[in-house]
Structure formats: structure tokens, C-alpha cells
Amino acid sequence: MRVLEHPDVEEIHLEAVLHALADPMRLEIVRFLATTEDGAACSEIELAVTKSTGTHHYRVLREAGVINQVYRGTAKINSLRSTDLDTLFPGLLASVISAATRRSQR
């Protein structure tokens, strides 16, 4: 089974997290994942980009420590690293998701 590289909690840096969350497509991924309990496959999240661009966005989020990705068969299942991010940066993820949701409702 293939295993993807993720940063350990102590390797997650605020600058990388903010950079990952600054892109509208990546923010949409995070907003979607915030509504799931068990995570979601990449194919479940509709993005208006090519597959290769989508793969890039998931990689940036994973390498920044925002999401966790595991293989389940041939699918990558994505989930937010909410606990890790809340421990390091209390309230950041919830605030960003809330602001993005309000903005999308305008």
C-alpha cells in the first residue's frame, strides 16, 4: 500500500498553512471537507480545474499540513487535520471556513 508524506505536527508552519488557504480552489476543498465526518475522495469534490491542477492543489494542502490523505483502494481519501491545526493555531481554521462560507453566500 502506498503511503503519502505528511508533515508531523511540529513541522506545520503558519506561513505554509496561510499560503495553502489563500487559493480559492484549495479553500473550496477545505470548505467541502469541513462538511464531512469521514473525509471524501478527490472525485467527490467538484473543482473547475483539470485533474492535474486538482492534484497540485491537494498536494499543497497535504504538504502544508491542512489535510490528511490516505489511499483506500485506488482512491485518495482526504480529511482535514482540524485537531492538529486547532492545537497549533486555535480558531484559525474555523474562522477561515466561516469567512469563506459567508463570502460564497454573497
Rank of each mutant, 00 (worst) to 15 (best):
G65F: 02
I77V: 15
L21M: 06
H6G: 04
P7I: 03
K76S: 11
Y58Q: 12
S98I: 00
H57R: 15
V70G: 02
L33C: 03
T87D: 13
K51H: 07
Y71T: 07
T36C: 13
S82D: 05
H57K: 12
E44L: 02
G65L: 08
R62S: 09
E28R: 12
S104P: 00
G73H: 09
A99R: 14
L61K: 10
T35V: 07
S82G: 09
A99Y: 03
T50G: 14
G39W: 00
P90N: 13
L85I: 10
T35D: 04
M25N: 13
R59G: 00
V60A: 13
R26H: 01
E10S: 14
A20Y: 03
T55R: 11
Q105W: 02
D23I: 12
P24N: 11
E63A: 10
R26I: 04
A64R: 10
T35I: 01
S104F: 04
L85S: 05
L92I: 09
T101R: 15
P90C: 12
S52A: 09
V30W: 02
A34M: 06
A34L: 00
K51S: 08
I45T: 01
H57D: 04
A64I: 02
R103P: 00
D86L: 00
S82N: 09
S43D: 11
E46I: 06
A100M: 03
Y71D: 10
V17P: 01
S104A: 15
A99I: 07
H19D: 07
S52H: 09
E44D: 15
E10Y: 09
A34Q: 01
A41D: 09
D86P: 00
R59Q: 09
V17Q: 06
T87C: 11
L27V: 04
T74G: 11
L88F: 06
A16W: 08
R72D: 14
S82C: 05
C42T: 14
A99V: 11
A75T: 06
R103M: 10
L85M: 08
I77T: 05
A94M: 10
R103E: 14
R59W: 00
E28H: 14
E28M: 07
A75L: 13
D8G: 03
V9K: 15
E63R: 14
G39H: 01
S43V: 03
T35H: 05
I12C: 01
S104C: 03
V96S: 04
L27T: 02
L47E: 05
E44T: 08
Y58S: 05
C42L: 10
A99F: 01
L18K: 15
T87P: 00
L80G: 07
H56F: 11
R59L: 08
H13Q: 07
S52R: 13
E44P: 00
V66Y: 05
A16S: 10
R31S: 07
S95T: 11
R2G: 03
V96W: 01
E5S: 11
H13K: 15
